[in-house]
Design a protein around this nucleic acid. Structure first.
Length: 470
RNA sequence: GGCGACGUACCCAAGUGGUUAAGGGGGAGGUCUGCAAAACCUCUAUUCACCGGUUCGAAUCCGGUCGUCGCCUCCA
């Protein structure tokens, strides 16, 4: 069984075969840093991270590039409104974005190029498009891509250019294009807007060109995977394909992956709809980042996900179940002969996990296998049929799968010092059968986000999933 | 108007032609336990939005209907 993925280009599930045997090059359209990103945005970034982690887990070397868009209309407008420089605004939100990724345990991309640092690459690309007759200049000095020059336009989105509903949402002025469907590669300088002096004139880049320039700069003219939300299919990704392939004459991206939207109140979560929630809001409500990560990841990426109060509650319960099982296995001691059924149990779970994820990243199926394993192991912990070695192997096996999921609690080295001390004091109190002290310490530990449970193997603890800071 | 996605129990959610429709949550009952928590056991969909059709056999394939959502020029 090998990995099969749904390619938006062609709308079918295909066997995944990277251009190079053991190496995968992937690109993700990153944020426009005009403000903090919302939970819906993070669905697509967590999804991209799942792809990256799963590929690495499967043995590939992955080069992952995610851009940061740090110049565009909204950035210019908001910086103006707030009376700060564009650099100050974008720096602040780019930092915030990186911090959000870190907390959500998104593997740091190998590169996070910024648009403003790649103007020469974009200019070179636009020059080529001008030379080849795919782009033209308007009176004010702006440059547009000529859609009519590219017959394959509309293939990704499966839209016929002739049937597009032109005119409804196109701004009337729009720099005097030849055809309303043509899109901007370069916007001529305007008073009060940032601009660069370049070989193609004074101005700033359009949105789409930056992704073509930066992806090809770091990944080559042809690379394996490109991810984003479904809302980027058209026009953003369609335009990327047109301008990239028209410039290089080579296939741009092999496989396009798009995740469905996160919905709130029956509608796509979007700033424009006014129904957004940010990671910080989630943490404020007492859920840990890994619960949010899990919530965004636990359903299939191509299915719309309705975000409700229950979404996080369910996620917290499931994460907790995995944590509890790991804590129980870690605390387990039984110097006895091993349970001969354990290796097959662990291997069976791993196989199911892999076959689930190989099937277009069917996380639900993979997780069902993990939960079945958890139940089997809990049963064996209860009846004490495991040896200490079995328990170690089982915990290691679950943590091995968690290299993909990245939701389990981290080891105890991360515990705050006072909590470690309280745990020790509580062990002593229990040894003295001082229940009053034992119960008081249990409450105090909860204040540190540590849940304590008593078993025949003694006290064991795990991190609460609903207290901020996990 | 065009294109696309989705509709499985109280909730979330797998399953896409063939034994009893995964898994988690919630609920009910039980076991264990200093208390608590966790865990374990039993129960909780004769049925897959609806209507037809194909087939020995359909949640799965085909046709139609209804409902929800998205995209159709700068939105993850």
């Amino acid at each position: 069984m090998t990995l099969r993925l749904f390619n938006t280009l062609g709308r079918s599930i295909e066997k995944f075969e990277p251009i190079e045997r053991r190496r995968v090059r992937m690109y993700t359209c990153g944020p426009t840093v005009y403000g903090p990103a919302h939970v819906g945005n993070f669905r697509s970034f967590v999804f991209a991270d799942l792809v990256r982690r799963y590929l690495e887990w499967s043995g590939y070397d992955v080069t992952w590039v995610m851009n940061i868009t740090d110049v565009d209309d909204r950035i210019i407008r908001i910086a103006k409104e707030q009376g700060i420089s564009i650099e100050e605004l974008t720096e602040r939100h780019a930092d915030g974005f990186r911090e959000d990724l870190r907390r959500l345990r998104v593997t740091p991309p190998d590169r996070m190029p910024r648009a403003t640092e790649h103007i020469p690459d974009m200019v070179a690309l636009i020059e080529t498009l001008l030379d080849r007759g795919h782009a033209y200049r308007t009176e004010d000095g702006s440059i547009f891509f000529r859609i009519q020059s590219w017959p394959a336009y509309g293939r990704l989105a499966s839209l016929e250019p002739e049937q597009m509903r032109v005119g409804e949402r196109v701004e009337a002025d729009d720099y005097g294009k030849d055809d309303v469907r043509d899109f901007a590669l370069w916007k001529a300088a305007k008073a009060g807007e940032p601009s660069w002096t370049t070989a193609i004139g004074e101005g700033r880049p359009g949105w789409h060109i930056e992704c073509s320039a930066m992806s090809m700069r770091y990944l080559g003219h042809s690379f394996d995977l490109h991810t984003g939300g479904v809302d980027l299919i058209f026009p953003h990704h369609e335009d990327e394909i047109a301008q990239s392939e028209a410039a290089t004459g080579e296939r741009f991206v092999r496989t396009w992956l798009h995740c469905a939207h996160l919905q709130l109140g029956g509608q796509k979560m979007a700033r424009r709809e006014g129904n957004i929630e940010r990671p910080a809001d989630v943490y404020q409500r007492g859920y840990t980042p890994r619960v949010l990560r899990y919530a965004l990841m636990r359903t299939h990426y191509r299915a719309p996900l309705e975000y409700t109060d229950e979404t996080l509650v369910h996620a917290a319960r499931e994460v907790e179940r995995i944590d509890t099982a790991l804590a129980a296995l870690d605390a387990y001691r039984n110097e006895a002969a091993g349970d001969p059924s354990v290796p097959a149990l662990l291997e069976g779970c791993r196989e199911r996990f892999k076959s689930g994820l190989d099937d277009d990243l069917n996380v639900s199926d993979a997780l069902a296998g993990v939960f079945e394993l958890v139940r089997e192991l809990n049963r064996r912990v209860s009846d004490r049929s495991l040896s200490t070695t079995d328990a170690r192997a089982a915990a290691a096996s679950i943590r091995e799968l968690d290299r993909v999921l990245a939701v389990a609690q981290e080891d105890e080295s991360a515990l705050p010092e006072p909590a470690t001390r309280l745990l020790e004091e509580r062990v002593a109190a229990r040894a003295a059968r001082d229940w009053a002290t034992s119960d008081r310490l249990r409450d105090e530990l909860l204040g540190y986000g540590v849940v304590v449970e008593d078993t025949r193997d003694g006290q064991r603890w795990r991190r609460a999933v609903e207290v901020a800071g996990g």
